[in-house]
């Protein structure tokens, strides 16, 4: 069978290209997985690198808002659970950077793009975590929305991404249940705890709906992404699924969804329009914590430079000593 290496040296003729392209499209249409050594259109590679890198960056930046509450978790059990969760996110970032590397980009390049502010990450992490209940709301809503987005990615046409997502989704659904459990305890707790839970829902509801991206009519990447089976559902379809799942959970908690237009039409929960101007503002860098999040990542990177340099220097010394011996 003819396969195409990443290091293809000979330029391809038009005829070869169209044959390869047909074969690629047929493979994707047949639900076969595309693997790193397979030929793929440049646009497919670019689309995946962008999406996987953004996903990885989101995991890494996403450690910060919840990490903010590690020191103050109100019980030792909660502290342990939160720490394990934030650690999982670091692990997800690592898998995803590895998955993206199979497409020919290095982790260093991706990290540089994040630190320079030229790569995007999920804009939800540009909101602040103000109370302990935010750890519950993030697990319940933000991880819940992430799962809606990510479960279909387990069937993504690109093999390494699809396989990484299987494990990530398992862990994410565990996080979602933990978040909901925090909210359950708070909503059955003291009046102050219940108010804390309601306040967190009020602040995280709309940003969570925005996690699915702009309305389908305005989304630029949907068509190709759907054809190539990277994406399986449109932004609006996923947003509706999320609302349908989440509203009854809010009712179970005895909390009020902060949407005066919310109503049930017998099949779906009909909801109001998110403030898309806020979405654009946060995405373009003017959210409440954009600068802070990037500054924190840059500080960690800069402060760690001497450590990474020392590790490399020691490894080289060790190698040269072993050579002499």
């Amino acid at each position: 069978m003819y396969t195409q290496g990443l290091d293809q040296a000979e330029p391809l003729g038009d005829e070869d290209l169209s044959r390869l392209s047909e074969r690629f499209e047929a493979k994707v249409a047949a639900e076969d997985k595309v693997e790193p050594t397979d030929w793929m259109p440049d646009a497919y590679r670019t689309l995946l690198v962008r999406q996987i890198a953004q996903h990885a960056h989101s995991e890494i930046v996403g450690m910060l808002p919840e990490g903010n509450w590690l020191s103050r978790a109100p019980s030792l059990r909660r502290k342990g659970i939160l720490l394990a969760k934030v650690q999982d996110e670091a692990g997800h970032g690592l898998y995803l950077y590895c998955a993206a590397e199979t497409l020919g980009i290095s982790r260093d390049e991706m990290v540089e793009q994040l630190l320079a502010g030229t790569a995007k990450y999920s804009s939800i992490f540009n909101y602040p975590t103000l109370t302990w209940a935010d750890c519950g709301a993030i697990g319940w809503l933000v991880d819940g929305a992430a799962i809606m987005n990510q479960v279909p990615l387990c069937r993504c046409s690109y093999g390494p991404y699809a396989r990484a997502m299987v494990r990530i989704c398992r862990e994410e659904s565990f996080h979602q249940r933990q978040g909901f459990e925090i909210m359950t305890v708070l909503s059955q707790g003291t009046p102050e705890q219940k108010a804390m839970a309601q306040d967190a829902l009020d602040r995280w509801w709309w940003p969570s709906l925005m996690m699915f991206g702009p309305p389908d009519a305005q989304s630029t990447h949907n068509d190709r992404s759907m054809r190539w089976k990277v994406k399986r559902f449109t932004n609006d379809e996923l947003r509706q699924k999320f609302v349908d799942m989440t509203v009854p959970q809010a009712h179970f908690l005895g909390l009020t969804v902060p949407d005066p237009d919310l109503s049930y039409n017998g099949e779906h929960w009909v909801f109001g329009e998110p403030d898309w101007s806020e979405f654009k503002r946060v995405l373009s860098g003017d959210g409440p914590c954009n600068r802070e999040r990037l500054a924190a990542r840059n500080k960690a990177h800069d402060d760690g430079a001497w450590v990474r340099e020392a590790a490399v220097a020691h490894a080289e010394k060790k190698r040269s000593r072993e050579r002499v011996a």
């Binding site: 450690m63 402060d303 450590v307 990474r308």
Partner: peptide, 27 residues
């Protein structure tokens, strides 16, 4: 735990969180 998200490399974020979790469990 104060290092979590701020370590010199992603692998160290993971390692330090692991150590902290173990030690917290012992406590």
């Amino acid at each position: 735990t104060a290092w979590c998200g701020h370590a010199p490399a992603l692998e160290e974020d993971i390692a330090l969180a692991n150590v902290a979790l173990d030690i917290l469990g012992q406590a």
